[in-house]
């Protein structure tokens, strides 16, 4: 593979329903494989019959006896079809039931869909302990995770194919889905319900960490942003608070508290920007701030006319938000 493709894979993560990496996805994959094999057998059998029928011409003699065998053949084929469909139905029901029963003692996460990004919140009885991030869901390996899904605008659908199937996010409704990641790793997910202009660029990452690393991550996320020590980043903070950024984004520990766009308190710890559209590098961030409309036309983020010095200071500040 070429170098750019390899580089891209490091932030994309695994994204295939055919390579299940959790028990839920494995069940769906097992059902799918069984259906595929049965369908393949049926297809081959039907084609063989067709070839047979085309090759053997009907003759005039013994018409009545032939009619009878043919009627029997059609009856057997119909019965077999019904049996196969009932078996499919039963297996499908079993799989669906196993996937919907949420286990006790699960990690609770709220995911709110927006055009076109994912708001991720870890609720806590103590509001100051609540963690808010975007487009990146960290989960502990081996523990079930229940995701409560909501939408603020239109229908979306939550789908990390390597872990579990799809579940729709519907405005005014709450739905939920649960999964368990058995191996540490990065799994990509995607909005699976057409939701407007940038539906394709509405991805997210599920990052499964061993329990200790997950606890570390959670502790770091609970922290507020610190006032930067070097002068360039400090100026960047002023730029942030004095320009249009502050109208939509929140940074804990500063007066910025708007909830229109993603929370940026720990922006630099995230792997991607713009809902999985680009890797989170200084260059990409600069392009995104200055002209988001050419990267993701129609996004609510407006273009920003910052002077080069202000932009560099702002980037230095955003890089301190670990």
């Amino acid at each position: 593979m070429t170098a750019p493709v390899m580089a891209a894979l490091q932030w994309v993560g695994s994204h295939s329903a055919l390579e299940p990496l959790g028990p839920q996805a494995a069940r769906i994959h097992g059902l799918w494989r069984f259906m595929w094999i049965v369908a393949a057998v049926v297809f081959v059998a039907v084609m063989a019959m067709l070839v047979h029928a085309a090759a053997h011409r009907r003759r005039g003699d013994g018409e009545a006896a032939k009619e009878r065998t043919m009627r029997r053949a059609v009856g057997v084929a119909t019965a077999l079809t019904v049996v196969v469909l009932i078996v499919f139905l039963a297996l499908d029901f079993g799989t669906g039931r196993a996937l919907t029963m949420p286990p006790q003692e699960a990690v609770q996460i709220r995911v709110i869909g927006h055009q076109w990004w994912w708001d991720v919140r870890y609720p806590s009885p103590d509001p100051s302990e609540e963690v808010q991030t975007a487009n990146e869901i960290h989960v502990p390996v081996g523990r079930p995770v229940v995701i409560r899904l909501e939408s603020r605008d239109v229908n979306h659908s939550f789908w990390p194919p390597s872990l579990v199937g799809k579940r729709d996010l519907i405005p005014g409704e709450q739905s939920s889905i649960w999964f368990r990641a058995d191996t540490p790793g990065v799994f990509r997910g995607q909005c699976a319900e057409f939701c407007g202009h940038q539906h394709a660029k509405m991805g997210f990452l599920v990052i499964a960490d061993p329990p200790e690393r997950y606890a570390e991550w959670m502790a770091a996320q609970r922290d507020s942003a610190h006032t930067p020590s070097d002068s360039s980043a400090r100026r960047g903070q002023e730029v942030f608070l004095a320009s249009s950024c502050v109208m939509c984004h929140a940074i804990k520990g500063t007066p910025a508290g708007s909830r229109v766009g993603p929370d940026l308190t720990h922006l630099a710890s995230r792997r991607t920007i713009a809902a999985g559209t680009l890797p989170n590098t200084r260059g990409n961030l600069a392009g995104w701030i200055v002209d988001p409309q050419s990267i993701k036309p129609g996004t609510l983020m407006p273009s920003n006319n910052l002077s080069p010095d202000d932009l560099q200071a702002l980037l230095s500040y955003l890089e301190t938000l670990r």
């Binding site: 004095a242 320009s243 249009s244 502050v246 109208m247 407006p302 273009s303 920003n304």
Partner: peptide, 8 residues
């Protein structure tokens, strides 16, 4: 002005 872009 300055906080909300002119397009918005």
């Amino acid at each position: 002005g300055g906080k909300v872009s002119s397009q918005q």
